[in-house]
Each structure stands twice: as structure tokens, then as C-alpha cells.
Design a binder for these strands. Sequence first.
RNA 1: GCCAAUGUGGCGCAACGGUAGCGCAUCUGAUUUGUAAUCAGGCGGUUGCAGGUUCAAAUCCUGUCAUUGGCUCCA
Length: 642
Amino acid sequence: MAEITVILPDGSARQLPEGATIADLAARIGAGLAKAALAGKLDGTLADLTTELKDGAHVEIITPKSPEALEILRHSAAHIMAEAIQELFPRAQFGIGPAIEDGFYYDIDIGRPVTPDDVEAIGAKMAEIVAEARAFSRREVTAAEARELMADQRLKLELIDEMPSSTVISLYTQGGFTDLCRGPHLPDTSRLAAFKLTKTAGAYWRGDNQRQMLQRIYGTAWFTQKDLDAYLHRLEEAEKRDHRVLGRQLGIYMMDEQAGVGLPLYLPAGARVIRTLQEWLRRGLYQRGYEEVITPHIYNAEVWKRSGHYYFYHDNMYFFEVDESEAKNRSKLSEYGVKPMNCPGHVLLYANELRSYRDLPLRFFEFGTVYRHELSGVVHGLLRARGFTQDDAHIFCREDQVQDEVVSILELVDYIMTTFEFTYSAEISTRPDKSIGEDDKWEFATEQLKAACERHGLSYEINEGDGAFYGPKIDIKVKDAIGRTWQCSTVQIDFNFPERFDLTYRTADNSTAQPWMLHRAIFGSIERFLGILIEHYAGALPAWLAPVQVAVIPIADRHNDYAFEVDAALRAAEVRSVVYDQNEPMRSKIAKAQMAKLPYMLVVGDKEAAERSVSVRERLAGDSGAQPLEDFIAAAQNLLNN
RNA sequence: GCCAAUGUGGCGCAACGGUAGCGCAUCUGAUUUGUAAUCAGGCGGUUGCAGGUUCAAAUCCUGUCAUUGGCUCCA
């Protein structure tokens, strides 16, 4: 796109060549508000144009190759796709077709599913439209006129109906296709240089699962073919990092149809990593004044009724009945529910004894394995499973301690995320429509979260109405090595549980008060976090976390004895070591260790056996020469134990 | 749960109406290797499952289960 796009105060856009002047722009606008606003500022090029004009009016300048220009390109691509669909399926109904990250989509209804052949035909038709350089033109109509023009487009009519009848509606037309649209768009279809239709999917109209499912066609669009190729290459690279692929290659976990959907089984390497992560976090939590507890996996249904989960989440929990009568010919059925979270256990522990204000804050943590009957369509490897382990904690504290506790949680989050080289951002979610509790409590809790973020120097965005039903929360989103974001940590303030379970403590003046309760998880789900780590590091976990840290590689069979001696010494020093004693050339063993992404390889041959040394090869740095075995072990202990 | 696509030896793939083939891995033998893959031979599948069409089905149809990509959901 060689044009600068100027979006005028009325929302319409003009494209001018790079290097155009403000006078050129004024000439293109004709009479009207914008021209008046530009009066007296006609000197210079568009680059000199200030976006704030007279009387509060402003223009937006979109330069070539900017993110805004890319969005225009993609939005136009959606219109071009819609035009192609209309030509191929004249009776198609159109929903919405926006630009999205990396591309665009359009929701349509052609009375049947969209097949791969259809997609190919649509892509080919788009190429024709692009080749014909059909101009985009804008015009404005009243809602009534729009209704008339869109008379056979029931989905569009629905959109028009939702706008106030006084709204001026803008329409964009290219070729024979007209769409309701705010714009702006490309000057003509030939500017769509590089695009590809990527996938189809069903999507509910207006995102409402009670309504009709439309067919969604996704595409991606870029300024140049080179950009498109680079994008497709990026996708391939991301696929190679897929934790499900690497999880298999590295022997982390498996799934088995016999076990059930969304229930991973951890292989030795996976178990090692998970236990290492837990042990590391456990040490950090003890240092920070947390106490570990262990609570049941199942509870009598009465507990879930009291907490409200029995009613709120019944379909997403696993309930079962047990006959508890030990006498014959009698039955006494009890209902139990498998825990979908760890809160009730910690609440019961709190209520076990009379608490004093001096006891607070009380911080209970647990690696609690929970089960949630997630919809079959949402399970995804370790990232969304039906069984997973939370690094869960509940902090019971006085009102004046809430903010300090939140700050210290944020500090812990920072320590953990920094360890894994994640950058992260925060969102504060406020009261949803469907929620419980008094306004002043919500307000107090939300203010505490905001104040804690500010004290900690963490900027945040507000996610209006996205809190839990019982309280507001801070969500932490981490950004991985290839720029994707993942939701991990969460801090939630809760006043529902303390109320429902009558939690109290004795105050300094010997009265009774209700504690505040914080829920927090740092990893969120340990297995999910492991999945993210695998993708973040492309399977090459940091040495301290690697399931196997060292491969001892004997050059020939006669070096096996020494290799096992080295292995035993490493194991004695708590280094996770294996011997590659297969009857294979050393080079082949090295290749295998490299592919297993082991951090260290110790090559031992005649020379090493004679002088009791090891030749060290690092996974990334390569061969770094021989050193005495004791030296390597001493260094390894520092390096491999975080 | 909804829409679509896909299920072939442990893993990755081929055959797409004429009763399954390759690579890796595994096993056996040879080889004894100095920093990313030594050679040879062998084993292994009634093509997710259940029906149907056909002289003939991995291949076509129906159902079902699972996986994948989306949608909705995620306490």
C-alpha cells in the first residue's frame, strides 16, 4: 500500500499518495467540516498534519505499512472474500467479517457446511476480484435506506435494528458487493497482495450458543508475499513447539482412550519435572510463611451444597453415590463429589479451631489435584485437561492485611515468572452481572487489588465485569518465547466462603469478626504450566528442571564400566544421569542425546577412564573439553539445583 | 455441548474399489567407534469400533468412539 490513509472526523477515509500535501487532502475532501477544520493549516505535507483540528475535531493518519494499515488490508480482505462468496453462492447470508490478529474472517450461511472445495473456489474467485482492481466506494444512508438495501440479508437487518434509527449508516461497495461498514478500506481490491484462506469453523451468531451456528471462514493477509510466507513459517515453528508433540517425544505424558478424555498419565520424565517444580515452589512458599496442608479429593455432597458449587457447577463436577450401610438388607446412600477446587478443605481447616487476630494472616497451600468435567470440545493436551493439580493457596486475613498480602503475592509471581524468563501483564476483573455480595465489599476488594498493583509497580488493565461470582481478581498473563500470551496466576478476593462457612476470628477488643479470604495460584495448574514451559523452551527445559540432566556416553563397550562409575557418582550427588550404553557409534549417541534435549553429555573413552575425567558437551555450546570428574560434579551441583 | 476435518504396525507417513507398503523405533548378528545418526537381516497391521453397499472395501454409505481446528465455556 503506497498510500497514506486519512480518516476524517466523520469516520470516512481518504487515500493519498505518500508525500501528498495537506492542500491535496483539502482538495479531496470538498466542502464540509473537515475542510473548515483544515483551513489555515494548508502548508506542508500530510506528515506535518496534526491530528487535533479545530473545535475538537480530529483526523487519524495511517501511514503505509503501519499496524493500522495492515488492519485495513485485512478488513478489506474480509469484504473481498464476502464478494467472492456472494458471486459463488448468490443466496448466501452474511453475518460479520472483521479483521483479527494475523488475518480476518467472515461468518456466513450458505445453507450447508462449507467444504474444502468451496474454500478453494472462494480463494480462486478472490484472486480474480483482486486482479480486476475493483474500487471500494463509500456512501452514507439512513437506517431506513439501509434496511431497504439489505432487505434479503436477515442477519444484517438484525444488526441495523440494533442501531438507533437516527444513525447514519455507512456502506462500502466494491464490484457487486455492498456491506454495512464503518471503514476505512483499501482504494481498490488490487492492493490485497498476499492472502490465504486458512480454515473453516462453525461459529454461533452473535457468539451466543443458543442461536444459529454460522460457517466461519478464516484467512490471513499481509502486505507482501514474503510477509505471508514468514507468517506461515512462524506457524510451522509454533507447531514444532506444540507440547503435545514434544510431550510424546520427550516422554512427558500420554493419553489413553481407555482412561477417558482429558486425563493425562505422566511418564517418568513428566513426573520428574512436575515433582521438581513442586519441590522448588514448596521451598519458596515455606520461606514466605505458607503452611502446607493436605485435604481430601472427595467430599460429602453437603459440603458442595453449602459452598454453592453443587448448584453453580453441578454439571461440571463428578458426583457419585455410595451405599454406606454395613448391614444387610438396608441401604444408606450418600452422595459425594470429587473436588473441582481446594477451597472447602482449607476453609474447614480454618474453622477447626477458634482463631485469634494474632493468628492472621494464615496461609494454607496445597498441591491439590482437582477434576472438572470440562466440555469434551475444549480439552487440549495439558493446557486444558479434566484432571489437573493446582498450586493452590488460601490466605485468611484481617481487612487491614488484605493489601499487603496481595502485594506479597505479586512479588512471588514476579520471582517465579522472572525465573522462567516470562514477561507478563496484569488484568483486574471487576464485578460481573451475575454475582453475590454487598456493593461496599466489592468496592473495597477491587480498590485493594488496584492499590496493591500500584504499590508493586505493576500496571494493569481493567476487565469490566469479568470477575468471579464471589469477588474481583487479578489475572496474570505471561508472554512466551514466541510472543503468545497465556493466563497463569490469579489472585482473587472472596467474601462468599467466609460467610457461607461462618468463618470468624477473635479481635483485639474480644469481639468476633469475619476474616477476608484470598484465593491465589501462581502456576495455576502445574501440568498446564508445564505445557507452557515446554512450548516456551521448545522442549529444552532449563538444566535444573530437565528430567534427565546428563547423558554419560561411553565411546566403546570397554568404557561402559567407567561410564557407570561416573553415573553412580552423579546420582550420589543428586544429578539426574543416564548411561547411553547401547552398542552404537558415539556420534549416534550424541545425536540421540541432542534430540532428547539433554543439557549435558559426558563423553568417556580411554583417556577419560585413565585420568578419571569426563569430556563435557553442552547441548547448545558443544564440546568444551575434558575436566576432572569431581570438578564437573561440584559445578553441576550449583548449576543443576536451582 | 455445537460445526467441520481426520483416524492405516509403538511413532511419522504411503496406497484412495481389486484382500496393505516405506522411514524411524524395536529384535538378532556383525562392527568397537572421539562430539548430530555404522552395516545386514528379522519381527510387527484382519486399516478406531459396529453395521451396510459391492463379485470385491483401508478406499463408498450410516452410526458410534477418539483426535485435530474453531465456536461456546473455563469456579
